[in-house]
Design a protein around this nucleic acid. Sequence first.
DNA 1: CCACGGTGGTAGA
DNA 2: TCTACCACCGTGG
Length: 152
Amino acid sequence: MRLEASDDGLAALSWTDLLLPTSPVRGTSAEIDRARGFLRQGAAWLRAYFSGHLPLPLMPPLRPVGTAFHKAVWRQILAISPGTTTTYGEIARWLSMPGASRAVGQAVGANPLPVLIPCHRVLAAGGKLGGYSSGLRRKRWLLAHEGLTWSS
DNA sequence: CCACGGTGGTAGA
DNA sequence: TCTACCACCGTGG
């Protein structure tokens, strides 16, 4: 996987088989140092997550870029209590926008920080799997890694 | 405007 | 269970 950061925090995580073009490193050396620190923390967090060791290290600040609606949805995803799942419709209701489950799906799909913003814990109604932008096999893997189940 | 989704709910086989 | 159909709503063109 590849992590991207600014001096504000982590901005994006991509899978190596879905690589996007790399953007050049720029900024003052102090800014670059800060960003590097976040990358180190992010990498440490991911190592712990994937090896299943608890407790996880503190997560560096996350600064995904998106619209206000996107950020509201991502915030709700971060609020999912560990070991549980939720649904697109439920997030829509949390936002007091009960008919917006489909728009929520779009926002979830636009999550630039998969795994760290655990959008794999968002299932379709009835506990069914739903979709996953970076491949359903990954969603299934991540859910199983966390001991979570879904219905078929 | 318009078309598109990681939806959800209903109806019928 | 599965398919068909439609309301829903933020985004990007």
